[in-house]
Simulated scan of single mutants.
Amino acid sequence: MDLKELLQVHLLEITRERDPYMATAGHFFVQEYIRQQLTQWGSVDFHTFQVGSKTCKNLILNLPSQSVQNKANLPPVLIGAHYDAVPGTPGADDNATGVAVLLELARKFAAEPTRYPLRLVAFDMEEYGLLGSTEYAALLRQQQQPLRLMMSLEMLGYRDANPGSQSYPSPLERFYPNQGDFIALIGNLRTIPDLIGMSRRIRKTGISSQWLPVPNRGLIVPQTRQSDHAPFWDVGYPAIMVTDTAFMRNPHYHKASDRIATLDLDFLTGVCAGLEFAIRRL
């Protein structure tokens, strides 16, 4: 199967009602699917945390760097995507696309490691206030675990090339294109060299890319904080969100209509290939 078909297989499994409270069977199914997929490439750790009486789980796969000698304690690149969805939506773009790309990156990087060790994390409870990533970022900070970079894969499959299809928080519309046919990289100021380099490399693979650095943990543009990178910003890590910009482009955001049929699978495949290329060159 080619990359597009492999992504489609993942989407077919993950795109279903999977709210952790209202659709527990779907939520457990997707959690188990992710575990089975990642287990092919190494042992999967669970990071469990409590939300009230509920036990929630982030799933973690660590992949080694290129060579053992090169392991001179290089900090890992953490790549995350949330697997929960809001009630009443099958969550194809939000965030089956992010999880599908996470699983394919695991496959690619297990077969051919990168310069940095990688930590791939499927986050739970994002839709309830970034709870899984908040717990995990706090744990890493407490362990004094350095990170080369944290990347949150957040909605990667919706493209609309029509003029006027892309909106922005003011005044960004003056500086960025008004058609929603690009993938956006949004990072804190420490990531500016990575934003520039990764955007350039993604464009080299044929996918349009825009980048935005935000000061002060994104607090002045709250829309830039709506994913699992924000808790990493808050505790001082360099972190980037990779996104199709969600509700600023996709009219199916958080709706029952967020289905596979609305996605642009060629765009999603290009984003996945572009990210692999960019991450290999960090």
Rank of each mutant, 00 (worst) to 15 (best):
L103Q: 09
G132L: 06
P20H: 01
R174P: 13
Y158H: 07
P251K: 14
Y33V: 04
D160S: 08
G88L: 15
L105Q: 00
L11D: 14
A96W: 02
L263H: 06
L38S: 01
W211E: 05
L120K: 01
F182L: 11
Y168W: 03
Y253F: 09
P90N: 00
E127F: 02
I60S: 06
Q37F: 08
N162S: 11
Y83N: 03
L102Y: 00
L172F: 02
D93N: 15
I186H: 13
Q50F: 08
A110S: 07
Y83V: 00
R115T: 06
D2V: 09
I240L: 05
T39K: 13
L78S: 08
A256P: 11
S133N: 04
P75V: 02
K255N: 04
A261L: 05
T114M: 03
L156V: 09
A72K: 14
A278C: 02
S53G: 14
E13D: 04
G164P: 04
D266W: 12
V221I: 12
P76M: 03
T24K: 15
S227V: 07
R280V: 05
F123S: 03
E13S: 03
P193V: 00
Q40A: 15
A256N: 12
F175T: 11
K57N: 06
R217W: 10
I196R: 01
R141I: 06
S257L: 00
K204W: 04
T245H: 05
M198Y: 12
V9E: 13
S257N: 07
A230E: 04
G206D: 14
Y168R: 10
I207G: 01
Q166E: 10
F247H: 09
K4P: 05
K204G: 07
P169D: 07
Y168D: 14
P113L: 11
L78Y: 06
L130I: 11
R249Q: 15
A138V: 08
A122N: 05
Y168T: 02
P163R: 15
R35K: 13
S170C: 09
P90L: 00
L102S: 15
L130V: 10
A138T: 12
P177H: 03
L189F: 06
F123P: 13
G88N: 10
H252Y: 13
I14D: 00
P213I: 05
R217P: 00
L78E: 00
L102G: 01
V271W: 15
E5Y: 09
L139Y: 07
Q223Y: 09
V221N: 03
P215D: 07
D194T: 10
G88A: 02
V51H: 11
L172E: 11
Q69D: 10
D258S: 04
A138K: 11
R259L: 13
G274Y: 11
L189I: 15
N95Y: 01
G52C: 01
K255G: 08
L212A: 07
E173D: 12
E5K: 07
V44T: 00
L7S: 11
S133D: 08
Y128I: 10
N178Y: 10
A92E: 01
Q31V: 01
V30R: 03
P75T: 02
L212G: 05
D19W: 01
E5G: 09
S209L: 08
P90T: 02
H47Y: 08
G218V: 02
L219W: 10
L120I: 11
L219Q: 13
L74V: 05
N70W: 04
K57F: 12
